Simulated scan of single mutants.
Amino acid sequence: MTGAGRGIGAAVARRIAAAGHAVALSARTEAELASVAGTVPGEPLVLPADVTDPGAADALCSAVERAWGPVEVLVLAAGAGVASPLADTSDADWQRMLELNLTAPFRLLRRAVPAMVDAGWGRIVAIASVAARRGEPLVAAYSASKHGLLGLVRSAAAELAGTGVTVNAVCPGYVDTPMTDATVAAIAARTGRTPQQARAALERRQPIGRLITADEVADAVLLCVGSAAITGQGIEVDGGAVQA
């Protein structure tokens, strides 16, 4: 799985491993991966990589195949966000969001699918966002990339229906992770609020009145892995913010 160095990815890795799957952990920072690996049951593979590298998908899948055989469960959790007014969003920011949040998952999905189809079984789960389900101000590049990711999931699920391979997205709201910490800091810097006030504002965006936990997102991922009847879905884990 990608994005396994912290936050949602690390939580999902632990839950997938606890459910009995051998887990390959990938992220850019080897030290973070080593720390997570120490909390994961079994003997995970640690595979540092920048998933935006065009060769990363083949390198990661090939490493898993050499160790264990074809990838059976692919969790696409690597991602990042950027916030700025539309008119101030640079080409570089736009391209970075598309490369990390959409193109990298596409390459990994494309590489893993043939072996899953041959085996007659596979599970693919992408971590999207509520920003894949509705427009939000100041995050045009991020929202576009996540809308695209949900479209990729739906198209792949429709194409693979009947093969034994399911493809789903989990769409969290604001999760208590380092990524949200960065969002809080950006809001505080932009608005003059204290970090505590900025965090409280994000909590109020969700009807349950708090941030989502990474483990709650992992619950939805495990549901997708366990079910053959759930495919083509964008599952909200957002405290009721988007009623889909």
Rank of each mutant, 00 (worst) to 15 (best):
L74F: 08
A92D: 15
Y174Q: 10
A63Y: 09
P41R: 08
G164R: 12
S90V: 12
A157V: 08
V242R: 03
A229L: 13
A27K: 01
A141R: 11
A200D: 14
L98T: 05
A161M: 10
G151P: 08
P54A: 10
G20I: 09
V117T: 14
A63T: 04
V46M: 00
D176Q: 04
A67T: 07
V221R: 11
R204W: 05
A128W: 03
G148D: 02
I8T: 02
L109S: 13
A144N: 07
V175F: 08
N168P: 08
L150G: 06
R111C: 11
Q233N: 10
M116W: 02
A214S: 14
S145R: 03
D58M: 12
A119I: 04
A13M: 09
R199D: 11
T194Y: 11
H21L: 07
L109D: 04
A169H: 09
L76K: 01
L47Y: 03
A228S: 15
W68Y: 12
T183C: 03
I127Q: 00
E72W: 01
V12C: 01
Q95A: 15
N101D: 12
C171D: 00
A214R: 02
E65F: 09
A57T: 08
D88N: 13
Q243L: 15
P70E: 09
L60S: 02
A126R: 01
R204C: 01
L25G: 00
A186V: 07
A144H: 03
